[in-house]
């Protein structure tokens, strides 16, 4: 069902089901979990349930937008123990290298197999702009450190680890963020630092993304790393305006905002989903694209509709229940 050849002749490194999906050449679907502002585990399960049937793995955000929510590691711990496949997001804004390495070991001990290494939004965009910026490492240091822990079995200091964490390492990319001609080179740096998969920022500008992927293929990166494109439905033109002005790194072209503005209010949700499905259909055709990462903030219920309409998961996979635990799957 996927057109792209499976990259990375490297052997399987983790027990990640996401890694198995990608290596088998299937088109992967990941989705972003809305981390609750709550201490109740049921809130995590409830948010995960709507996503779990339609994706291969669930990303738990780590203080997204520099706002405080339940931590990524706790969401992942809860969901992993309930049998879901999760992606732990680790940012460099909130913790120093000592805390991060400890968290990577802890996450692996709790069964987390996928880690996404990100720089993190600045504290100034969040609701607590007076917080201290840590940024002890950058995302590339974090990737290399995690990779060293896994492959060489040592901490950054060189001290040995008794049982190294078997993690499938991810990084982010911003194909539609300036400086455009440097972005593919920066991806190359991330691959060199140890990235196994990439989840990109929202991609609303398909032409820009095609140019980016062209350069990525020239550098041969699509054969060394799995690339999942970030997509998501818009709720209204106001939401689009907010996203492109307030959320760092998101760019939405005028024609998409105009398209949202043209439809009557009752059909805006439908139009947002339609645009998202169209983008998925277009990016799927690009060589080197191995999956999509759906970010539907506060409209998680739309994810399954998008996945179904884009025809991403085969019927068998949908019936098998995506990344949901075995006991929640339909009887075989």
């Amino acid at each position: 069902m996927n057109h792209s050849p499976s990259p990375s002749p490297r052997p399987i490194r983790s027990e990640s089901r996401l890694e198995q999906t990608l290596r088998s050449g299937r088109f992967a679907v990941t989705a972003e979990l809305n981390a609750p502002d709550s201490a109740d585990p049921q809130d995590v399960y409830r948010n995960a349930l709507v996503l779990s049937k339609c994706c291969h793995a669930i990303n738990a955000t780590d203080g997204a937008g520099a706002n405080c929510h339940m931590s990524s590691i706790s969401c992942c711990a809860l969901l992993t123990r309930a049998g879901y496949e999760t992606v732990l997001q680790v940012n460099c804004r909130d913790r120093n290298r000592i805390a991060i390495q400890g968290d990577l070991l802890g996450a692996a001990a709790m069964g987390v197999r996928n880690v996404l290494c990100i720089t993190g939004d600045d504290v100034s965009v969040g609701d607590q702009p007076g917080a201290k910026r840590v940024f002890d490492m950058d995302s590339i240091h974090l990737l290399r450190t995690a990779c060293t822990m896994r492959d060489r079995g040592v901490f950054l200091s060189g001290r040995p680890i008794a049982t190294p964490p078997r993690l499938f390492l991810g990084a982010v990319a911003g194909p539609c963020t300036p400086p455009y001609d440097w972005r593919p080179e920066r991806l190359a740096k991330k691959v060199e630092a140890g990235a196994d998969f990439i989840q990109t920022q929202f991609c609303f500008n398909v032409e820009r993304f095609k140019a980016y992927m062209g350069r990525v293929r020239d550098l041969g990166l699509h054969e060394r790393v799995f690339i999942l494109i970030g997509v998501g439905p818009l709720r209204s033109e106001r939401a689009a305006e907010y996203m492109r002005t307030k959320i760092p790194g998101v760019w939405i072209p005028d024609d998409i905002v105009d398209r949202m503005a043209r439809v009557p209010r009752s059909q805006k949700r439908e139009e947002g989903i339609r645009i998202c499905v169209e983008i998925i259909e277009q990016v799927r055709e690009i060589e080197g694209v191995h999956g999509v990462h759906v970010m539907a903030y506060r409209q998680e219920e739309a994810v399954s509709e998008i996945i179904e309409r884009a025809g991403l998961l085969s019927l068998g996979e949908l019936e098998a229940g995506g990344c949901a635990p075995a006991d929640a799957r339909s009887p075989q």
């Binding site: 720089t119 600045d122 910026r133 940024f135 982010v172 911003g174 963020t177 300036p178 920066r186 790194g249």
Partner: peptide, 21 residues
Amino acid sequence: CPKKLRNGPCGGVRHDNHCEV
């Protein structure tokens, strides 16, 4: 760089090439 990055720009660069922070 307010984020003290040593390996290149973060994903928050604005579309006029200005700093996120």
